[in-house]
Design a binder for these strands. Structure first.
Lengths: 240, 240
DNA sequence: ACCTGAACACCGTTCAAGT
DNA sequence: ACCTGAACACCGTTCAAGT
């Protein structure tokens, strides 16, 4: 197993293993990696320390506390978006709709890579400078597209989490197994209590072979909602 | 202090205090009350037990574990929405837009009463029967309004958390004090790094006396976004 | 049927101490 | 400058036991 604390390329001395000192960057990168593997619930100070081959308390030299760690993790995620976009510069052309759309779908790619990220983002209360720059670039795209700042302000609120490439998928089981069971429970209740949902399920689910679930393609649904909002925004502009 | 475990109205016997036994309902009601007072982070099994004048382990007789408790709390919240609406029956008239709007704004009233509820809802992965009936009623309103089930399905996804009366207010500090400090930090970065946000702030915030914050009226912004979506839905129908 | 006490494994974090 | 060890307060939860 690769241990990042041990450098094998000690140039002169014999076999003396040498420590690569921790850094805030290495701590945050380790936290992202651990969350990818173990979920956000598996990201604890103690386990993170272990994954970095260090004692738990060493982390506190690089990070004030767990809250600061999580803020840093969010910032790292935004950093991935920035890298993917090649920076947050506002494009020259005035096609705000296409620019906004690709920017948001790029953010979504990062969210899909780190499925725990949306849930974490929702818990944060402060915005990092890098995240501010991301939102500034969204505002810039709209501004260069000819919107008033008053409208831009409302639009940013209306976009909500869509701005970062996810929407509130209420009650999405991460466990396919359990989802199946829940669906069967649901069917029992259905006929009498849930007439509309039953009818909807029967009509919509037919062309998907793997049973009742998997009938919602996340990406398709996200883009549907996003385009609905973008079209609404376009209309707003025409009106105003 | 009022202790719900002690009945003062013992009809016959002298002063023998008598226990009102716990019940799932009392546990859930206590949990909602505790969350209202102490936030969702303050809702622990041990503190909940204490607030009910009972030992922590007693709760496990009425509730399988904390996860089940939280599911029950969510169900109780949906119960408040149902009570507020006088049931989930789908209205007779076909004004889907007005019906959907008032239904969602009613749900929002409950969310505003329990500010921790949106955050909790986001963490749940299973839907209670009562919540299914809520969503069934939304589907019903749209169906009676003449939408195809295929469209209804997409619309429900697009509504996302709006369906329950909240949207993903990213990075909303609950602490006004800290918010003020953050805003000042932001200002320092602004001029150079955040040109569009700076401009937006200067233009939009002028008519609000209490400085830079408080310039976002949650209710107004929510209704703006909701109406944007509802208008988009209306257009979808006309097109299809 | 309903509640309790002691105990376990696991958290985040402080503080004084090591190199 | 960077890391550690022991200790504290707080979790959720099990299990056997009480009434």
């Amino acid at each position: 197993m690769y241990d990042p604390n041990v450098t094998t390329d000690t140039p002169t001395a014999g076999s003396a293993t040498q420590r690569v000192p921790l850094s805030k960057e290495r701590v945050l990168a380790g936290a992202v990696e651990l969350a990818d593997e173990a979920g956000i619930g598996g990201l604890t100070m103690r386990k993170l320390a272990e994954s970095l081959s260090v004692e738990a308390m060493s982390l506190y030299y690089h990070v004030a506390n767990k809250d600061a760690l999580l803020d840093g993790v969010v910032d790292a995620i935004v950093g991935e978006i920035e890298a993917e976009l090649g920076g947050f510069d506002v494009p020259e052309d005035a096609d705000w709709k296409a620019n906004l759309r690709t920017r948001i779908l790029t953010a979504r790619e990062v969210m899909v890579r780190h499925k725990w990220a949306p849930g974490l983002l929702e818990t944060r209360t402060v915005m990092s400078p890098r995240m501010m720059r991301y939102f500034d670039s969204l505002a810039g795209i709209l501004r260069e597209g000819g919107f008033s700042y008053d409208l831009i302000h409302h639009i940013m609120h209306a976009l909500g989490s869509n701005a970062l490439g996810f929407n509130q998928e209420l009650f999405k089981p991460d466990n396919e197994q359990q989802a199946e069971e829940d669906a069967e429970e649901m069917f029992e209740l259905m006929a009498a209590e849930l007439p509309y949902m039953t009818a909807m399920l029967m009509e919509v689910a037919h062309d998907d072979d793997d049973s009742t679930l998997g009938w919602c393609d996340d990406q398709t649904e996200f883009e549907f909602g996003l385009d609905l909002t973008l079209d609404g925004i376009e209309r707003l502009k025409d009106t105003a």
